Amino acid sequence: MNFASDNVTGASAPILDAVVRANAGAMPAYGADPLTAALQARFRALFQHPDLVVFPVATGTAANAIALAAMVPPFGLCLCHEEAHVMGDECGAPEFYTHGAKLAGLPGTGAKIDPAAFDATLSAMPRHVKQMPARALTLSQATEGGLVYRPDEVARLAEGAHRHGLAVHMDGARFANAVAALGCPPADVTWRAGVDILSFGASKNGALAAEAIVVFRPDLAETIEYRRKRAGHLLSKGRLLAAQLHAYLDDDHWLANAATANRMAARLGRGLAEIPGVRLAWPVEANEVFPILPAHLERSLKEGGATFYGWHSTSLPPGEAVREGEVFARLITAFSTTQAEVDAFLDLARACA
């Protein structure tokens, strides 16, 4: 009953098999192999975009930091949610790779940026050489609160960003979960809605270590090839990275994995919401569940063998609060989470409650 993260699982069988197949024989190094070359066509077809450029990397932190470095100069500012992964969980990598640019956090329930707050922030920003100018907006899809931006929400934020001269980046560490939840083409929630660069994640959804920087504006792609190499993220055995991404996309494996994780999260959330004394901070939209639990129930669950994290959030809905004797928790399901695991957790929670 491990619901600590979707990072704690191993890789899926089709991806492992693809790595083994790609391992045989010799191929050119540093991305000059045919598997890496074929990724361009795969991603252009997936996103229905004839000019996108894709750069495989091994980690989400690298994808985010290198992408933002291509968008934000050292004297610039990148706006994000105040709880975004790039803000609090990447050890300053975006600032490091941009050589000094800063991140500025914005509010919003469930770690989703509030459009009104975004518009107000941009309108109130001084236009003086003494202040860092905003140059990019980054959105987490799904958010750190497990909520999903709909295409119209992305479009509204992107329109405001572009109107003020900002480029738009999307941190898609759980992009598959968002697309599976929305049921829309990936294009509708990215470039058609105004996203300029996407960090396309796979590691949380069945890959060994595979992410990709997907650039929808070719002018922003010009420097990424060099930035990726300089940052140490051009893998010598790039075929093994490309093989993972091919297997991830084959037969919509990426969406099938994400749909499983989402279904298990929905089941977990419904079951928890029925237990007396438990309430969900916000709806379950992807593969993360955020319950507010009686403290004794949290202790009993962990003593009973369940693994999950306590959580802290500044983005609870208006009027909601974690009261004395309560604990705010985060539970995450993965592509390999089974109904039996979810039901065992819920049975334990009912018994402990």
Rank of each mutant, 00 (worst) to 15 (best):
V215T: 13
M264A: 13
G271E: 03
R263I: 04
L280M: 13
A266L: 13
A266H: 14
V214W: 01
P218G: 08
L255D: 07
I224L: 15
E285H: 03
L272E: 01
E285T: 06
V284Y: 01
A221F: 05
R263K: 06
A266G: 07
A273E: 15
N262V: 11
S203Q: 05
D251Y: 00
L241D: 03
E274I: 03
V215I: 11
M264G: 04
A256P: 00
A273H: 02
A242W: 01
P283M: 05
A286S: 15
L235A: 14
N205G: 07
A242T: 07
R270M: 06
T260Q: 14
P283N: 10
N287E: 13
V284W: 02
N262G: 12
S236A: 15
K229C: 07
M264H: 06
A281K: 02
A286K: 02
T223E: 14
V215L: 07
H246L: 11
A259K: 09
A231P: 09
P276W: 00
E225G: 15
R217V: 09
H246Q: 07
L268Y: 01
L235I: 05
A261I: 05
G238H: 05
A231M: 06
L268R: 01
K229I: 12
E285A: 12
V215R: 04
L280C: 10
W282I: 04
A259N: 09
K237R: 14
V278C: 13
G277Q: 10
L235F: 00
L220V: 09
H253K: 00
S236T: 11
E288Q: 13
N262E: 08
A259E: 14
A210F: 03
R228T: 15
A221M: 09
A247T: 11
A261K: 02
V215S: 11
E285W: 00
V284F: 03
G232A: 11
G271V: 07
A221S: 13
G271C: 10
H233R: 12
R239H: 13
P276Q: 11
R270P: 01
L220E: 12
K229G: 07
V278P: 08
E222A: 15
P218N: 07
N262T: 10
H233W: 02
D251E: 15
K204R: 10
L280R: 05
A231V: 04
E285C: 04
G269H: 01
G238A: 10
D252H: 08
G206Q: 08
L249Q: 10
A210E: 10
I213H: 01
A209I: 01
I213E: 03
A247C: 09
A286P: 08
E211R: 03
W282H: 14
A231Y: 03
V215D: 07
